[in-house]
Design a binder for these strands. Sequence first.
DNA 1: TATTGTTATACTCTATAACTATA
DNA 2: TATAGTTATAGAGTATAACAATA
Lengths: 145, 145
Amino acid sequence: MADRPDLAAMISPLGRALIEAELPVLREHGLSMWAYSVLLALGARPLRTQAALAESIRADKTRIIGVLDDLQRRGLIERTPDPGDRRARLLSLTEEGRRVRDSAQAGIQRNEERLLGRFPADDRRAFLRVLRALADLPPEEIAGP
Amino acid sequence: MADRPDLAAMISPLGRALIEAELPVLREHGLSMWAYSVLLALGARPLRTQAALAESIRADKTRIIGVLDDLQRRGLIERTPDPGDRRARLLSLTEEGRRVRDSAQAGIQRNEERLLGRFPADDRRAFLRVLRALADLPPEEIAGP
DNA sequence: TATTGTTATACTCTATAACTATA
DNA sequence: TATAGTTATAGAGTATAACAATA
């Protein structure tokens, strides 16, 4: 027997539980998980094509179309044909979209801070430092040789 | 904007990537992810019913039947009717099952140790300490009030 | 009647392929 | 012809409901 559980066996269910914890907050804002992912991705920087957006959130491009339709209808994003190439749609957050994203994220991180609050500050900082570094690794690096 | 990404946004994709990293190792041992989960759960302690096993790995009970069929056929687990209640099936690992589980887990953790090896020992210990504590929390505690 | 395990069915999510419009 | 976006179809994975055996 190993002296610790597999990382994946700890991290993967924890991720599912954290997503479960997000759902009530997102529901209050009328957002699905995909919709929230889109708002986060567009907030980081506006994107020039839906395909690029889909790739950045690791989704299939056909999967986000309904999500974009809904966000646009509700005035949270703008989707305008690129004048330079009318096949592409320029994507960006509206002010309202930014507001909804920030409000949802504040609610989510409030709960996450409650969870982290049970650990000593040093452990918390080290945990976040390692987690951020691991999360930034490209999947090929995680997969290994 | 928040000063860090949401925990879920970091942890959940990381979990998926770690599972991807496990797949080649599991494939070498002829194991699916569910089969490996079963071997791990039965290794911790033998279980008296399939329903209890399913619950312990957060699976539907109908979902693991084919997995158990296969593991039993290959001699990795034993599934014997409980003499005291012939409806139930006593589940346990065989010696071969234990061997396969240990070999697969060794391969998986070898790669995980490679990933952790890039961090200072202190950070690594703190990371695992916090991660284990979070993974041990019941989902209700993670969900919050 | 209730419970364990099983099988059959339906549903959800996701990806693949076909289509439209621009280039 | 190639590409961005969209729609329609098919596939995988999962859960729900019905069933058989035992209590």
